[in-house]
């Protein structure tokens, strides 16, 4: 429909008023003039470590380490006692190779 296409073209030709352009430019300058927000040490670290998620992971790992260190490894001791003889040569020597 040609009439409709003509109308669309007319609508495209709409120009902003000088007053509007001036207001928008004034906004641009006002935002530009604002000093950049001061980046705190915490923000710097969090950016460095890719956000708070990394902190969460590190905290969990640290706590797990402490817990494993403090807790008595009783279950493991039970397993080794049950399956291994009293003395176990964990680092075998190879002296037998030298024997003729």
């Amino acid at each position: 429909m040609n009439d409709l296409d003509d109308l669309f073209a007319l609508a495209r030709a709409e120009e902003p008023s000088p007053a509007l352009l001036a207001r928008i430019l004034a906004d641009a300058e006002a935002v530009q003039a604002k000093p950049a927000p001061r980046r705190s040490r915490w923000r710097f670290l969090s950016v460095l470590l890719a956000g708070a998620g990394a902190f969460g992971g590190m905290a969990t790992a640290a706590l797990a380490g402490v817990w494993i260190g403090m807790a008595e490894p009783a279950p493991l001791a039970a397993v080794t006692e049950a399956f291994l003889p009293d003395t176990v040569d964990l680092i075998p020597t190879y002296e037998f190779l030298a024997e003729e």
Binding site: R12, E14, P16, L20, L21, L25, A28, Q32
Partner: peptide, 19 residues
């Protein structure tokens, strides 16, 4: 901090968003 860029963007984008 480029002032000319602000002006260019204003002239380029305002007519479109206004229409």
């Amino acid at each position: 901090g480029d002032g000319a860029a602000a002006r260019s963007l204003t002239l380029r984008l305002t007519p479109r968003v206004l229409a």
